[in-house]
């Protein structure tokens, strides 16, 4: 059991960490670095009653050290997600639910919903330079939202009868009923098109990465189980 947990999580986490970083370099980092042009003032979109600026990302490969950091921290993050997910596999297996590559893909999709999509409903992924509410308050809401959504999805998936459905829906809705911390003023300096494209791209890349994580971890888990 312990060996299966370790090998499934490590292999899936490292593989997906690298793949997620590659997807981010293609789809997310160029938008992020374009946003930094507005953060630093190198580009200005809103000036004297006019909203207009040149579109296009800067060259992203000027600072390789920065991108090595991104790869390294993706390895850490996705390996962390993988360890929590395989702990879930093990608990599900003890309760009589087998896990393989196909059900692993569903686990990955559920992870994406809990860790990315649900918190993004309250706190959209932010371009650099976005002014937002107090960091501590946002981190608390984010962590609470992820936890409530994980428990809610688990209730929907594994608790039989109406209790599972009602409990699951309440848990998933609760963070959004409470509401994420927000400021009462808008400060955005980047073009809305860029900010929304950044949100959709980062969610898309995260969705693909999470489904891969669940599929690979599930396949490895089934091989050894």
């Amino acid at each position: 059991m312990a060996k299966n947990l370790l090998t499934s999580a490590l292999f899936a986490g490292v593989t997906v960490g690298v793949l997620a970083a590659i997807l981010q370099f293609i789809f997310v980092v160029p938008l992020l670095m374009e946003g930094e042009l507005y953060e630093t003032g190198a580009r200005v979109h809103f000036s004297a009653g006019v909203a207009e600026s040149e579109a296009g990302a800067p060259a992203i490969w000027g600072d390789i050290g920065r991108h090595i950091g991104t790869v390294a921290m993706n390895l850490v993050a996705y390996t962390g997600f993988a360890f929590v997910m395989v702990a879930g596999f093990a608990l599900a297996q003890r309760a009589g639910h087998s896990v393989d590559a196909r059900s692993g893909a569903i686990w990955g999709l559920a992870g994406f919903i809990a860790v990315q999509l649900a918190p993004a409903v309250g706190l959209p992924p932010e371009l650099p330079g976005t002014v937002a509410a107090d960091l501590g308050a946002r981190q608390v809401w984010w962590a609470g939202c992820v936890l409530a959504t994980v428990l809610g999805i688990a209730a929907l998936a594994f608790v039989r009868g109406s209790a599972g459905v009602i409990g699951g829906v309440v848990l998933i809705a609760l963070p959004h009923v409470i509401g994420a911390p927000h400021l009462d003023t808008y400060y955005g300096i980047a073009p809305p098109e860029l900010a929304s494209h950044f949100v959709t791209s980062s969610l898309g890349v995260a969705g693909a990465s999470w489904v891969l994580l669940g599929t690979i971890a599930g396949a490895l888990w089934a091989r050894k189980a």
């Binding site: 993050a77 932010e126 650099p128 937002a132 946002r138 980062s202 890349v205």
Partner: peptide, 16 residues
């Protein structure tokens, strides 16, 4: 924070 910066934005961890 500096090493993790781009990854945190990409994964949408609350950052800054």
């Amino acid at each position: 924070h500096d090493v993790a910066h781009d990854q945190r934005h990409a994964i949408a961890f609350p950052c800054h």
